[in-house]
Write a protein that binds this DNA or RNA. Structure first.
Lengths: 138, 138
DNA sequence: CAAATAAAAGACAAAAAGGTCTTATAATAT
DNA sequence: ATATTATAAGACCTTTTTGTCTTTTATTTG
């Protein structure tokens, strides 16, 4: 989605083939994932010539946290590091406080960073996926 | 394993039923997991009456990192936060530096803490799994 | 030795994740 | 209108993870 937004900022709408190539994932698998993201409202799409994926230009604050919660649930942000159900401040697991500190850092990161901020910050830089894309499939 | 070591420090060797109860996991599933851990040499066991699981008393430095790497591989400690293969210092992903900081923290935690240190530090405290255990199955 | 206890081994089964392909539908351009 | 382009939908398959059960083997105690 960061890649999509980066392209949107350049007035382009990347299609499945291009995105799949950039993130080094199979074509159809990528298609499936963005189908789901589109249905959930996280991306929009246009069919036909010149079509492709784009983010709602109205919203400029889609945090990583919102996305992660929508896709994987909130466990990462609330659950016990050891996966214990009974773990809390009164009955902490042996890793409770140490893990809590890291979880706070993760929370800070995913709350503060948005798809838009990441795209904006990295526009023009040499990135892991910014090599010019020649669509493939596989 | 922390629970096992805590019990070992009290000269007890917990069995599958007891461990399963403490970690709120199904009996047979827990059995499977410890079977694997035993084969990998991370725990030892004794069959028969009075038997159960215990850690090698010689080793007192089994880090969480060693365990995680043996069970899940090292990706958590070396991989890109976005899962990109091309991501490195020269070609960073949009989250590269932010995620790197968190990964460093995780590394520090799992390198510094061992099963033994966690067991030792938490002996006698009221813990998520320290309520006295009445073995069940399911 | 026999009985009881407890893990080891291995076969199975169910559910979730990952991956592929075909057909349908929408949009554009001519 | 129609040909082209591109996503949407849904069926389907494979692999991995999770979970269950039965049988075997080892150990202790009487």
């Amino acid at each position: 989605m960061v890649y999509i937004q980066m392209q949107n900022l350049k007035d382009r709408r990347p299609g499945v083939a291009e995105i799949a190539h950039e993130i080094e994932a199979p074509y159809f698998f990528t298609a499936k994932i963005f189908q789901r993201l589109a249905k959930q409202g996280f991306v929009r799409s246009l069919k036909g010539k010149g079509g492709g994926f784009f983010l709602d230009p109205e919203k400029n604050d889609l945090s990583l946290k919102e996305l992660i919660i929508a896709i994987e649930g909130a466990e990462l942000f609330v659950g016990c590091g050891f996966g214990l159900k009974n773990c809390d401040e009164e009955n902490p697991c042996p890793l409770h406080h140490q893990y809590g500190a890291i979880r706070d850092e993760i929370n800070k990161l995913v709350t503060g960073e948005t798809i838009q901020s990441l795209a904006q910050n990295t526009l023009g830089k040499t990135l892991a996926f910014s090599r010019e894309s020649l669509p493939t499939n596989g």
